[in-house]
Structures are given as C-alpha cells and as structure tokens.
Nucleic acid binder design. Structure first.
Lengths: 146, 146
DNA sequence: TGTATCTGTAACTATACTTGTTACAGATAT
DNA sequence: ATATCTGTAACAAGTATAGTTACAGATACA
C-alpha cells in the first residue's frame, strides 16, 4: 500500500459502470471486481460524484451509475477528479533563500511541474471512457500505444 | 515528508554543479542550498553518478562535479536517473480475474501508464540543464511555459 | 607518515500517505 | 416496518520518503 492507485481504481469502476448501462451498481459488487473493500470504492465514487461523472442513489435498490455517456467522459476528467497529485514533488523544505540558486529554483520547478501536468492532461484528453471499455472488451490493448 | 521530491532536488543539485563550472562541490555545501542533510544529497548524487551525469572524488579536497556539459544533460536524463516512479500506480491487489472487466483492466492500465510516461519523457527531453541554469540566472521563469 | 577532510553507505527514527476495515447514521424501495 | 443500500467517520496496518547519526575508506597535504 504505497503509491496512489486511485486513478487506476477509478477507471476500473467507471468501466464497470459503463458496462452496466443505465442500471445502478452496488459498491459491494464493484469492490468484488476491483478486489478491495466496498468503502474504498465508495470513497472513489464520492470523488467521481463531486466531479459530476457519476450519480448515486441511497436506500434499498440504490447504487451508482454514470452521469454522462462513456463517450463524454475523457480520461483527463477522471484524472482531475481523483487528483492523483503531481508527477514529482517540490522540496519538502524550501531551498535556502540566501543562495542565488536556491532563491531561483522554486519558481522554475513549479513552472516545470505545471508544464508536465499539462502534457499528462493532453495525453489523457485523447481518450474517453468508451475507448477504455472497447479495449477491455476487444482486448485490443495495443491501441493505447498506437 | 511525503511525495517524492528527488527529481526536484536532483535538478537543484545539478544546477549548483553547473554554476561551479569544473570545480568540485562538497555535499555539505550543496545541502546548505537545498536546505537538507548532506547524506540526502549524497544519496541523490549516487543515483546521478550511476547515470553518468556527475563524477565524484573521495578524500580531502574531494567533491562532485558534472560529468558532461550542461548542454548535454537533458531533463529526461535526470528524470530517468532518479526514477521518481509512475504518474499513477496500478492496483495494489490484482483485480478479480473471474470478472471480464477485472481480467482486462490491468494490461490496459499498464499500457496507458507507459504512454503517459512517454509524454512526460518527451516534455522533459525538450529542456537541458543549461536551460534551467539560464532560467534561474535570468529569472526568465516564463520561458518554461512558453 | 600522520592528520584532517571528504565521500559512500548502513542503520535507525520520524512522519505522512494510502489502503483496509469496522461501525453506524440516514435514505429508500417494497 | 423492515431490509438494503449509501455516506462518512474513525482507527489500524503497511510502506515510502526524508532526516539523522555513525563510521569505514579514500585522498590531499603538511
């Protein structure tokens, strides 16, 4: 239990929801496919709900379904929803401001961080949830590399 | 002390080395600018050394200097050297293989992971250590966004 | 040759983050 | 009413990163 796997789990969850078109899925059933606890799933669903990607219903016969069609959910939307964090972190302690290099590094690194985040976002914007479901269904996993 | 800031620190270290052209820098002095412990710096230098980016000398009057000129060190080289890890992690437990979606997710996610890593690498390949030192020197931090 | 100074690395601690788990209040279909 | 679901708080466990201390080994230099 180390690195953040929320994006991976979120994509898995959404793929399941896309498959059960229209009907509510229970967190318990989703958890079974993802191989984790139902509460972990509900936590992820909570973030996806706040991002407007899914809609949940409480009570008996409740559950969660997609709030938009799979074609209208880009992977970057999922990425932003669970906000996995940055590719690299800045210094945990600020650099020494008495040093010219230390003084200048932070803003340079911060800008670089933003630029990398943008390129990740652009890559993830190329694919929709529908692309993922198709790859999972057809086992045409190569498409994601082409 | 949370996210991996080794790439940020490595870039800071290399920028300092690029400034002291030719002469050895002591880990203690580098640590002062980065605002951390000398051993933390030596650990990062160890990785940069293995990647052939710096050269160290033990003993009195020892220290570390760049092994190549700053123009010949691309940021992607630094990124690979400290191997910060992936943008997102795969499931910590494998998905349920009895579920069609669970069975298909892993390879799809793995391919997506590789593609993202490639786009990060391409972005970082655009800049060299010289670009960083210039931005730090001239405070033309905007360049990294242009 | 002896000493001071530096690196390289092991070992340990502290901290923080992620996940897993239990528990329970609130909502809702039947 | 009751069974069944979600939402969320609270806590435990595992792990990664960074910080720190300690010390062996290398080397310049008096």
């Amino acid at each position: 239990m180390a690195a953040n796997s929320q994006f991976a789990m979120a994509l898995h969850v959404l793929t399941l929801l896309a498959h059960s078109d229209g009907s509510n899925l229970k967190s318990e059933n989703i958890a079974c496919s993802v191989n984790t606890n139902a509460v972990v799933i509900r936590r992820i669903l909570s973030q996806l709900r706040q991002a407007g990607l899914v809609a949940s219903q409480t009570g008996a016969a409740g559950g969660t379904k997609l709030a938009r069609s799979a074609e209208d959910i880009a992977l970057v939307d999922v990425y932003r929803a669970v906000c996995c964090g940055e590719v690299f972190a800045l210094h945990s302690r600020s650099p020494n401001q008495d040093c010219p290099v230390g003084r200048g590094m932070e803003s340079v690194l911060c800008n670089l961080q933003k630029q990398i985040d943008n390129s990740v976002g652009e890559t993830l914007a190329k694919y929709t949830l529908r692309d993922i479901t198709q790859m999972v269904d057809e086992n045409q996993h190569e498409r994601v590399l082409g």
